[in-house]
Computed example of a mutant assay.
Amino acid sequence: MLQEEGPIRFSKIMSTALITMYLGFSAAINLSGALAPLKSFIQRFLQWTELLDPTNLVVSIEKIEKSRQLLLTHEDASGSDLEDKRVQEAWKRSLSTVHPDSSKLIPGPFRPAALLPFTAPMVFLSMLPVKSLKSMILPQVSFYTYSTVFNIVNGNASYDRRPHESILVGAGVIASSTFFGLFPRLFQVRFSLNSILSRNVIPVVILAQLSGMNVVASRSLEPLRGIEVMDKEGSVIGYSRKAGTKAVKDTATSRVVLFGTSAFIPEVFSYFFKRTQFFLQCPWSLWTLKLSCTILVMGLMVPVSFSVFPQIGRIQCSELEKEIQSATEETELFYNRGV
């Protein structure tokens, strides 16, 4: 099992590492010099393509522990030590498997690399034509259950929360998300609606909007209790509800982009494919094309959506609570946005 000694120390190192990872491990990097390049979407995208490596789902606890111990003994890993490939691999392995706030191991099914293989089939099944409401219950329940747990596990964990609070919030979010996801399908079956709007457009819009609302609801404790904000040295200045609101809002926006695009593009391809001669000869090929298209689009959109906003978010001190402004002379503070 992962050792739990020094969680605060390791959490600070991990927070610094999140910034360092987006810079491509260049030499002689320090925290203050690392902040400007965070604006580069391309750098974040390239780093996420590495962190989303499927092998991170099956890496052993022993290897993760070795990576952790290596980083703990290389506190200056943001400098010249990054030229060491062992240190580079240790950062990648740690960032993809260990939570940056709590320094706890992220369960394999809920690591960032697991989002694509778990949700792509669910999105595909959720967008299939409705034959009966019963056929839609399992895909909707599965999708929103997984999304809710993923959002809670990978959200900011710097505030105090009890296990039963997460369970109660998660159960409520799963139930409400599933209900609103099935509601338009119920109308479609009940009134035999078969237009393009009701069959293709509305389900995509509902899926995208509910994916964003799922983030807002499942991480609702962050804006209520506030999350840690830090200066450029990594020192915690205080807890900010406004930073928590911004973190949740940005993540929700990225989910809307991810699932909205991943559901919309296969629908467009399917619409035109059904008018080809090949479809008339092989109608079964539609589902193969749609599933393949969903996986390919999501394979691109997952790193894109994770890269839209930096995981280490910035916020102007003037936008924060007065007690935080009075506690520091910094003009800009930082927080973990979560995934």
Rank of each mutant, 00 (worst) to 15 (best):
T288C: 05
S176K: 06
W287T: 00
Y146W: 08
N154D: 06
S40F: 03
P129A: 05
L193F: 02
P112H: 07
F41P: 03
P184A: 01
P310R: 02
V216L: 12
R68P: 05
L2N: 08
V123C: 03
R68W: 11
S103C: 14
S220V: 08
A208C: 08
T288S: 07
W284L: 02
A34C: 13
Q3M: 14
A217F: 11
S307A: 09
A175S: 14
D160H: 04
F124L: 02
F180N: 11
V189G: 03
E267N: 06
D250I: 02
T178D: 15
F179M: 13
C317Q: 11
V236N: 04
L46N: 15
S211I: 01
T145G: 14
S270N: 03
P203Q: 05
R255A: 11
I29Y: 05
K39L: 04
R241N: 14
D84K: 04
A17Y: 00
H74D: 15
L105M: 14
I137F: 10
R86H: 10
V201E: 03
T49Y: 07
V173E: 14
I42S: 04
R111G: 05
Q311G: 05
K39M: 02
G181E: 07
D101G: 13
G108I: 05
P112E: 10
V87L: 10
I152Q: 15
P107M: 12
S177N: 07
I202N: 02
K85D: 15
V236I: 11
S78F: 09
F118I: 14
L82W: 04
R337H: 04
L2S: 06
I137N: 05
L221P: 00
S135G: 12
R219G: 09
R190I: 01
G172L: 12
Q47P: 03
L186W: 13
V204D: 01
S94L: 08
T328F: 02
P266C: 07
S126Q: 03
V268S: 13
I13S: 09
K232P: 00
G6I: 07
T73K: 11
A217M: 09
E89I: 12
F110M: 08
S318T: 14
F143H: 14
A34G: 15
A263P: 02
S26G: 04
T288W: 06
I64S: 10
S15N: 15
I106A: 07
G226C: 09
S80I: 12
V87C: 08
S15H: 15
L280M: 03
G313L: 10
A175I: 06
S270Q: 07
G338A: 09
C282N: 08
C293S: 15
K246H: 06
F180W: 15
A90G: 07
V169N: 10
F143E: 13
A113R: 05
G234V: 01
L210W: 12
E332Y: 03
